[in-house]
């Protein structure tokens, strides 16, 4: 597991989804971030850097 998500903090704004260069993430029906395909993650950290809610972190 390299992505850690705090669902209680996520507001489903979609910023992480838009800035992820590898389409790893999506916003679910309940307006929370979800992982679509973690195997594509290159740990670039864009999601963590841009998330305004401290809801997603890349574990090194």
């Amino acid at each position: 597991m390299s992505l850690k998500i705090h669902l209680n903090r996520c507001k489903g704004c979609g910023i992480c989804v838009a800035f992820c260069p590898k389409q790893v993430l999506a916003v679910s029906e309940v307006e929370k971030v979800e992982i679509v395909d973690e195997s594509k993650c290159i740990k670039c950290g864009q999601c963590e850097l841009r998330c305004p809610d401290y809801a997603i972190f890349v574990e090194k």
């Binding site: 903090r9 979609g14 998330c51 305004p52």
Partner: peptide, 14 residues
């Protein structure tokens, strides 16, 4: 104290 009060997508958290 989290989640904070700011709206979805508000830049203030960053």
């Amino acid at each position: 104290r989290l989640p904070h009060i700011w709206c979805p997508g508000c830049g203030h958290g960053v």
